[in-house]
Amino acid sequence: MHNPIHPTNMGIDTSYLDKSLEEIYRNREETEKRETEYRESVVNALQGIEKNTALLTEMTILLQKSNDKQDEMFQLMIEILGIMKSSNEEEAESKFTTVMKKITTFTENASTMQSLISMAQTVYNAYQSLPL
């Protein structure tokens, strides 16, 4: 259907308006994308804080209930956290493997062993997610 009142039928150049509308649309999309990325990063940071808090709570509980091997447990936890000080992926993997071997020989208590393994995995995964 032919619209005689449409600006292009009157010899009016609307390309500037079209470009402006496209730019507004692109800017809105970029803003929404940045806001979404920001919200996701905040959620990830909060989840990381939650995991760290849970890890510290678990470490405290383990130390409190292992009176007979408290010093050894503390030393093992230091080694677990030492994974984060690794200078490269190979070193982190080596420390992780060493810690895992020590955990399996440290205790026969299944829940203690699982807690320590979980801690080591959490720390190792946190190291791997760091930007290098």
Results as ranks from 00 to 15, higher is better:
Lys19Pro: 02
Lys19Trp: 04
Lys19Thr: 00
Lys19Tyr: 01
Lys19Phe: 03
Ser20Asn: 09
Leu21Thr: 02
Leu21Phe: 06
Leu21Tyr: 07
Glu22Lys: 08
Glu23His: 12
Ile24Ser: 02
Ile24Thr: 11
Arg26Asp: 00
Arg26Ile: 00
Arg26Gly: 00
Arg28Gln: 08
Arg28Ala: 03
Arg28Pro: 01
Glu29Asn: 06
Glu29Gly: 02
Glu30Lys: 13
Glu30Met: 04
Glu30Val: 02
Glu30Asp: 03
Thr31Met: 09
Lys33Ala: 03
Lys33Glu: 04
Lys33Ser: 03
Lys33Phe: 04
Lys33Trp: 06
Arg34Ser: 05
Glu35Ser: 05
Glu35Trp: 11
Glu35Val: 02
Glu37Ala: 07
Glu37Phe: 08
Tyr38Phe: 13
Tyr38Glu: 14
Arg39Leu: 11
Arg39Lys: 14
Glu40Met: 05
Glu40His: 05
Glu40Val: 02
Glu40Trp: 09
Val42Ile: 15
Val42Glu: 14
Val42Lys: 09
Val43Met: 14
Val43Trp: 15
Asn44Gln: 15
Asn44Pro: 11
Asn44His: 13
Asn44Gly: 03
Asn44Thr: 11
Ala45Phe: 11
Ala45Gly: 06
Ala45Asp: 08
Leu46Met: 12
Leu46Asn: 15
Gln47Tyr: 13
Gln47Glu: 08
Gly48Met: 14
Ile49Met: 14
Ile49Val: 14
Lys51His: 07
Lys51Met: 03
Lys51Asn: 09
Lys51Ile: 03
Asn52Trp: 15
Thr53Ile: 14
Ala54Asp: 05
Ala54Arg: 05
Ala54Met: 06
Ala54Val: 01
Ala54Ile: 03
Leu55Lys: 08
Leu55Thr: 00
Leu56Tyr: 11
Leu56Trp: 10
Thr57His: 12
Thr57Pro: 05
Glu58Cys: 05
Met59Asp: 04
Met59Gly: 00
Met59Val: 07
Thr60Gly: 02
Ile61Gln: 00
Ile61Pro: 11
Leu62Lys: 00
Leu62Cys: 07
Leu62Gln: 06
Leu63Lys: 14
Leu63Trp: 11
Leu63Ile: 04
Gln64Pro: 15
Gln64Glu: 12
Gln64Leu: 13
Gln64Phe: 09
Lys65Val: 02
Lys65Asp: 15
Lys65Leu: 10
Ser66Ile: 00
Ser66Gly: 07
Ser66Glu: 04
Asn67Thr: 05
Asn67His: 14
Asn67Cys: 07
Asp68Pro: 10
Asp68Gly: 08
Asp68Ser: 07
Lys69Met: 10
Lys69Ala: 07
Lys69Ile: 14
Gln70His: 08
Gln70Phe: 02
Gln70Trp: 02
Asp71Arg: 14
Glu72Ile: 04
Glu72Trp: 06
Met73Lys: 09
Gln75Lys: 15
Gln75Asp: 06
Gln75Cys: 03
Leu76Thr: 01
Leu76Met: 13
Leu76Pro: 00
Leu76Asn: 05
Leu76Gly: 01
Met77Ala: 03
Met77Lys: 12
Ile78Asn: 10
Ile78Ser: 07
Glu79Pro: 12
Glu79Lys: 15
Glu79Asp: 04
Glu79Asn: 13
Ile80Val: 08
Ile80Glu: 10
Ile80Cys: 05
Ile80Arg: 00
Leu81Asn: 13
Leu81Glu: 06
Gly82Asp: 11
Gly82His: 01
Ile83Val: 08
Ile83Gln: 04
Ile83Trp: 09
Met84Leu: 09
Met84Asn: 06
Met84Pro: 01
Lys85Glu: 01
Lys85Thr: 05
Ser86Ile: 02
Ser86Pro: 08
